[in-house]
Amino acid sequence: MTPARLSLAQPVPDEATPHYTEPATVRLRGQHLRLGYGDRVICPQLDVRIPDGSFTVIVGPNGCGKSTLLRSLCRLITPQAGQVYLDGRQIRDYPARTVAQQLGLLPQSATAPDGISVLDLVSRGRYPHQSLLRQWSPQDEIAVQTAMQATGVADLAGRAVDELSGGQRQRVWVAMALAQETPLLLLDEPTTYLDIAHQIELLELFRHLNRHTGRTLIAVLHDLNHACRYATHLIAMREGRIVAEGAPGDVVTADMVEQVFGLPCLVMADPVSHTPMVIPRGKVHMA
């Protein structure tokens, strides 16, 4: 059986076609990055470019350096060598607040202070846009309301974050990141701990944001099929290196998946979105 190379030449519904062409501009990129913690080097040498207006998804096995790469792109870790550039300037040269106006992050682990209300937490996303004397503005109000409506947490505004369910809480954190209103938004495993319906709901929201507000999204996802369906640009990593990069339809092949994850599989067209769909073979081999 030959690996099914997916052809996107056939006509597909408009909804599923990524409106993605090679962009003229790349605001965020990393050059010759060496990343790691202390003596432990995770990515020895890495070049990465995040196309503007893309929904870029980074995939790869556990420990391949996905999160490390994402964290280096938003200054949470300093590269041991190489540089991250934002708009052509080294990102570490900007004041922290200037970066925070351009680049948002939904971190993997965040702690809600005890008893804080949803509204208060989402409002905190506005911090980079405020000053000591102007701690609130009509724009802040609009941004917070819009973010809460987009994520469907407007009804929860007065509730305490620690009373919410896991899915609701995750959406509150997303709302906080959205309220920051940054052109670039980094998402570190945003769908972890959510049930399948909430995962899809959230991913649909991200796609909507990406399409209709023109924001560049960069996410680390575990589910390869979700990545294939929602990404416009896929980065596959293994052992600290980028193995493949490009539109999912071009990049995702059975060979690639086996090379990255060590998982024998079939790649077929998703009957709904017509994007690649990865089906693990497991131990049951077909005749």
Binding site: R75, L76, A100, G104, L105, A110, T111, G125
Partner: peptide
């Protein structure tokens, strides 16, 4: 209080 990651992302 929300963690170093969140705080840095907000420019602190």
């Amino acid at each position: 209080e929300m963690g170093d990651d969140s705080a840095s992302a907000l420019g602190v």
